[in-house]
Amino acid sequence: MNGQVGGGKNNAAIGLWLLLLVAVVGCHAPDAVIPSAGPAPVPVVTTPPSVSLTVPFVYVGSYDNHLYALDTTNGAVRWSFRADTSIHSSPVVAYGMVYVGSNDYSLYALDAATGTRRWTFRTGAAVYSSPTVVDGRLFVGSQDGTLYALDATTGSLLWVLNTSFGLASRVYGLYSSPAVLNGMVYIGGQDNDVYAVDAATGRLRWRFRTQGHILSSPIAVGNTVYIGSSDKRLYALYAATGTRRWAFATDEIIYASPVVANGVVYVGSYDNNLYALDAATGTVRWRFRTNTSIYASPVVVGNLVYLASRDHSLYVIDAATGRGNQLFQANYDLYATPLVTGGTVYVGSNDTRFYAIDRSSGRVRWSFQTGGVIVSSPVLAQRNKTVGIYPTISGAK
């Protein structure tokens, strides 16, 4: 009962947060001109350390301001880090560190084994975006409308891309988490646009305009970038040029992030459906209907799809047929993307608890009570224990 009451209050806070995000995405300026091609300086990146983590930790953030490192065997707290305010961002592990953004405008790099702070980088607004780390560089968006590239080892700034393009009257945030492929960074903006940026220099390569603000995170596979928009569509764009390959219309906004596996793209919509689409054509293969809107992103493990829903349920779905069942029910909404290992599914809930669930039976192996809702998606210290294919918004990607 206490979990439900606390979850209700915090769930209202999540609803207010979504309304505030939508409120800043009204009228905006015409398309910006893409900078002309030319040489650009390439900032020097520190060679990152080679670190192999052996600690059996799962990391998750909470709206109680903490990032927790929990023992995967029993849920005991091994360490916790307190930010100045709530943590919405999902953590990512690399080079012996765990990186996470906070609503206190900061991105933190913490020692993954001890929780000791290595460095802090402050942006101009809340960091809902989950960081992506590739080749010693860390990429993250901020609600100040800026995409940042940082040296992952030192936290020093490499370059920035300001998506407001000098418009002082209004700033459109970057809630979306960046995807990186073949030297390009892709990210969606609350100004309705998808951006492609050179990962080494920060030079804008192209931008594509949708008809609604974007909270969905892109995923880049092969020659295509997939991303959802509040205009109710999932877009497939050619990664090199930004030209539209196809678009699929649902009946409601898409805030969830897509995932691609075995030639199929999976994405949830606020129309209550999880869609499985042919990745090449956008043709519907099947749809699975839940009891309310879907905010979390699916995870594909072999021939199974795991999906958390705002109807409080964690579902397991046959990837070939779309037939599925409820594996577990929490006490309140599930906004976070789950994490799957050989025998366990980890997921946080707006009932303020973090759950370790048996993959076969749905039995709760253990749960951990935080002091706030959990929108953050978990990640393991031992990355080789993670199974499945993940969306960009998850640190398990």
Rank of each mutant, 00 (worst) to 15 (best):
V194R: 04
W79Y: 13
P131W: 03
D104N: 06
T290D: 08
V197G: 02
M1Y: 14
A220Y: 01
V133D: 01
L234S: 07
S177K: 00
T321R: 09
V180M: 05
D144Y: 02
T224C: 02
V345W: 05
S176K: 01
G322W: 08
V171T: 15
T153P: 04
F208S: 09
P218L: 04
D111K: 03
L150M: 08
T392M: 01
G395E: 00
Y275S: 02
A319L: 05
A168Y: 11
A109Y: 03
T290K: 07
G372E: 09
T352I: 15
V180Y: 07
S164I: 01
P35L: 10
A239R: 11
T344Y: 05
R209N: 12
G75A: 11
V92K: 02
L53W: 06
G183W: 07
S376L: 09
G7Q: 10
V58N: 04
R78C: 13
Q143M: 15
P30A: 13
T132N: 09
A149K: 05
P218H: 05
L215A: 11
G342D: 15
V305S: 04
S90Q: 03
T153E: 06
P48T: 04
T386G: 02
L157Q: 09
T337S: 11
V58G: 03
A249T: 15
L174N: 03
S367G: 10
T292R: 13
A256V: 05
W246S: 05
T241I: 11
G228T: 02
G145Y: 04
T341W: 03
V379E: 07
D311I: 03
R82P: 00
Y63D: 11
Y255L: 14
T224H: 01
D318T: 00
Q190L: 15
F165A: 14
L107D: 01
G282K: 01
V185N: 02
R287Q: 14
V55I: 13
L334P: 06
F368D: 04
L215V: 13
G189K: 03
A83H: 01
G7H: 09
G189A: 14
W286D: 06
V127N: 02
T337I: 08
N74Q: 06
A199G: 01
L314I: 08
V375Q: 14
T132A: 09
W159H: 09
F81Q: 00
L277E: 06
A32P: 12
H28P: 05
K232D: 07
N384Y: 14
F208K: 06
L67C: 03
V42F: 00
S349Q: 09
V259S: 03
R118Y: 10
S360M: 12
C27I: 14
L277C: 00
S360Y: 12
I253E: 13
F248V: 04
L339M: 10
T123I: 02
D271L: 08
A76I: 06
T224N: 09
